[in-house]
Amino acid sequence: MAVLEVADLASGYGEVQILWGVNLTLEKGKLTTLVGSNGVGKTTLLRTVMGLLRAIQGTVTFAGQDVTHLAPHARANLGLVLVPEGRQLFTEMTVYENLEMGAFSKRAQAHVQDNLEKVFTLFPRLKERRSQKAGTLSGGEQQMVAVGRGLMAEPELLILDELSLGLSPLLALNLFESLLTLKKSGLTMLLVEQNVQMALAVSDYGYVLAEGKVQLQGEARSLLNNEEVQRTYLGI
């Protein structure tokens, strides 16, 4: 069953069109990676899927419902959740308050205690730092807060934009391990990553975005072995 279906989606900024008819389907329970060079429209696609940018044409269907014209907060209420690039934490609020705000939506309210426990099990460090202002944490810890806040939203689909950006390889590896744990629990996820090798290695499926369109898609393993992908994104 498809959790997210993007059909013929076009969007951009003002006069500048970036996406030219993107088609993408995310299956329930799968971890999918979206690959592409800088400037091909990965973030534009995510912003349009989340409703931060208006679609020029095409549709976004989430859990069987057409959400193309819904506001971002209404999409979050349905369980469409983005962990944005650059974390975008509530830096002036404590770690605990950040997690609380993650659970703002009605659907998340009923699961606050369960999800809090889940997040603290996944990232024990956050439990220690719960009363600290999020802005004072290290980069790795802030990324944990960002993921934790996303999980608090009781996501049906969790989208992670540039999770490993600016983190040490070890921290990135730890975070990817957490993703595998989440995947085992049945969570559907979409990764957008500059660390293509690591991302495809943990994923089930992959899309390659170029010039505002999906150029290539397939099983993550087959993409890893694809010559073009290797040449363009893996430097092999």
Partner: peptide
């Protein structure tokens, strides 16, 4: 309070608040 914290969240980062389901 929940709405009070939502005000602080929106003041701090309006986009992130929207993404978390807060009607900004």
């Amino acid at each position: 309070t929940r709405p009070g914290k939502a005000i602080r969240a929106v003041a701090n980062n309006r986009t992130a608040a929207e993404l978390m389901g807060i009607p900004s």
